[in-house]
Write a protein that binds this DNA or RNA. Sequence first.
DNA 1: ATGTAGACTTACGTCGACG
DNA 2: ACGTCGACGTAAGTCTACA
Lengths: 95, 95
Amino acid sequence: MTTIRKIVSHNLRILRGVRGMSQEDLSAIAGIDRTFISDIENAKYGTSIDRLESLAGALGVATWEMCHPQTADRIRKQADADASAATSGKPAPPH
Amino acid sequence: MTTIRKIVSHNLRILRGVRGMSQEDLSAIAGIDRTFISDIENAKYGTSIDRLESLAGALGVATWEMCHPQTADRIRKQADADASAATSGKPAPPH
DNA sequence: ATGTAGACTTACGTCGACG
DNA sequence: ACGTCGACGTAAGTCTACA
């Protein structure tokens, strides 16, 4: 029974990692307190759709993707593919 | 610049209409106060992801679909297709 | 059946500090 | 760079009542 809190929590942490941001970085860009981002990632609190929109914008995804169970995996695999393509000298996929 | 409040507001109202529910019906099923549902539909307030999850469950969609800009249209067209199929005696599509 | 208003409670959200 | 604690303010959420 994966709740929406767990989904958002997971997407947020993974996505932030892929973007190479610290909680402090994300805090500065999204305009949300760092300690609160920590709370969300640990599913201590749920958040409002307004804050979710700010976080999504800062992470470069749509708001609904923050609620989708497979966003974390999708973005992570895409980042992996891009990275290995860069290493092998191939051009990056156009998305 | 369509904000997440507008999207949720719109999806909620359309989806509820397609399901043939009043605000009172939805209130009873989702366990959320009727007047607050009214506020959300009029985008007076944003809501939390926890309440959004309850509303989505009561409406038979995933939570992320409540945040998606095209959910209202998608569901409405599907309902239309199902209705006309029923009228013409054809079997309902398997989705 | 819906929108709004007021009074009220609680969960969200900010801030400073410590390990 | 992250988790947590305490104190505090505000927006979310409930309930009753009226149009």
